[in-house]
């Protein structure tokens, strides 16, 4: 083998590595998320039936021409319910993430900025919050307040905040060690302005990728909360709740009402994960 051949092979290796993470999966996942968001936005326009229109002459129908994905125990069209369910499901996850992000980023940045005892105290608090499994924590919050979508979102947000806080603290520490931060300080930029105007925008690219991955996890956690009946209440067609209501059919051998919303959750979660991982690669910091 010639030297040229070897160098050609080694040169091709990293290219092959990039190929393996080929963009078609990424594009498919973006398309899935696009469809989910479109379904949430245009639900009344695209859904063939009203989500809670019952029809007792068509109970537990299998998928067919009239009802593409069949009907549930009250004769409601499952496709329409899944489409309408995108709204509470996605909005819930977004609200959860927004709440957790505000809280987590605040804690993380303050810990990284102040260091010393502030950092230690905040780290202990987040550790204590880590010690509770997320669901248990939410049940606690719901026991104190009342069940309902808002409580579920706030409770889950509190459970997610420590994750974001830890991540933010780590990347903020790294960023604060860069000399440009000292340069801003020497220019007479105050602490609050330095964080809000210069530090946070520089953390954003790294943070966004992480948050997209967390979005999938948040969606899943909220769905399981709703499945347990702590969040959305009937007649909402939130996906987790739909799985719960569909359980009655499983015993009778009708899988559709439970399986279809469950699959929808799984597909959307996987899609956000793929997109999130790719995004954090793409947005990786250029210096």
């Amino acid at each position: 083998m010639t030297i040229d051949g070897i160098s050609a092979r080694t040169a091709a290796a990293p290219l092959a590595g990039r190929r393996r993470r080929s963009p078609w999966t990424f594009r498919v996942c973006i398309a899935i998320l696009g469809v989910a968001v479109a379904a949430a936005v245009f639900a009344p326009l695209v859904a063939p039936y009203e989500p809670d229109a019952t029809d007792f002459s068509a109970i537990w129908l299998p998928p067919g021409p009239g009802h593409w994905l069949g009907t549930d125990q009250l004769g409601r069209d499952i496709l329409s319910r899944v489409i309408h369910g995108a709204r509470p499901s996605l909005l819930g996850a977004i609200a959860l993430l927004a709440f957790a992000t505000v809280l987590g980023v605040l804690i993380g940045v303050v810990a990284a900025w102040r260091r010393g005892w502030v950092d230690t105290v905040l780290a202990r608090i987040t550790d204590v919050m880590f010690a509770f499994p997320g669901l248990l924590f939410v049940v606690l919050v719901i026991a104190v307040f009342d069940r309902g979508p808002a409580t579920a979102v706030i409770g889950m947000g509190l459970a997610f905040a420590p994750l974001i806080a830890k991540f933010t603290r780590a990347i903020a520490l790294e960023e604060l060690a860069r000399p440009y931060v000292d340069a801003y300080r020497l220019q007479g930029v105050g602490g609050v302005q330095l964080i809000a105007r210069y530090l946070l925008p520089n953390l954003m690219p790294t943070l966004v990728g992480y948050l997209v991955v967390l979005f999938g996890e948040g969606l899943m956690s909220l769905a399981s909360l709703n499945f347990l009946g702590f969040g959305a209440q009937p007649p909402s067609s939130e996906w987790g709740l739909m799985v719960q209501e569909g359980r009655a059919g499983v015993i009778q051998g009708v899988l559709g009402p439970a399986l279809i919303p469950g699959l929808t959750i799984a597909v959307v979660v996987v899609a956000t994960n793929v997109v999130g991982v790719r995004l954090s690669d793409k947005l990786a910091v250029r210096t």
Partner: peptide, 8 residues
């Protein structure tokens, strides 16, 4: 010279 400027 790589870290002393704000990359944004």
């Amino acid at each position: 010279p790589y870290g002393s400027l704000d990359r944004r």
